[in-house]
Amino acid sequence: MDKQKLIEQYLTKSLTKEEEREFHRLMDSDPEFKADLNFHLGIKKALILEKEEALGSKLVGYENAYQRTKSIQRTLFRITVAAALIISMLLVVLKYNKTPVEANQLFLSYFTPAENIHYPITRGESDTLIVQAFTAYEQGQFDKALELLLLMQGTGQYEGLDLYIGSAYLAIGEVNNAIKVLNPNNVKDSLLLYRYKWYQSLSYVKSSEYDSARILLEDIVAKKAFKSEKASLLLKKLPQD
């Protein structure tokens, strides 16, 4: 078997089983063959070392490039996050700053506290709770009026208080409470029903829920009910939700 060929096959890991046996036999018995193999292996490993050193320097360059890209990506990410934050904040400001001013102005243009049609205060009125509550209500002391009206409602002896409680809530800016109390579905009296609808529509205007307000106002206008003329004017001024 050609010794040189055996070495070449060994270097490319392509010895057959038979060649492998011959290779090991020569390694054990032929010092010249072993020295020759070491020489060829030495060349191969020396060349590999040279290539490895060259690759090592390139890898340092790749890492530097990787770090640069990472840093650029980090900066871009920060810029994107910052931009997104600014845009979100602007949107929030636009939604919650601009609209309430507009909504509040509309509300104030149309709101007057619900007229007391249930409990007119006369000299003969002996119920001091009614007198105190509605005196405060008519004098615009809505916090005090609300406290007394809720007290009256707690006794279960008085009817129709929701309209005034809702109106007082609206007057002091507690819109969500007003919306709850002024629910028209709870009203059986058809004459009172549109008063509730009017004040609830104003509650929706104040909370910028224009679509909900629009439904109620359109109903008032269609039925030519309580405050239908004002409802018609307000409808025209409502912005889109």
């Binding site: 070491n38 020489f39 030495g42 060349i43 490993k45 020396a46 060349l47 070392l49 040279e50």
Partner: peptide, 9 residues
Amino acid sequence: LIQHIKDKI
């Protein structure tokens, strides 16, 4: 030996 060969190459 490898180092010598490397130097020579």
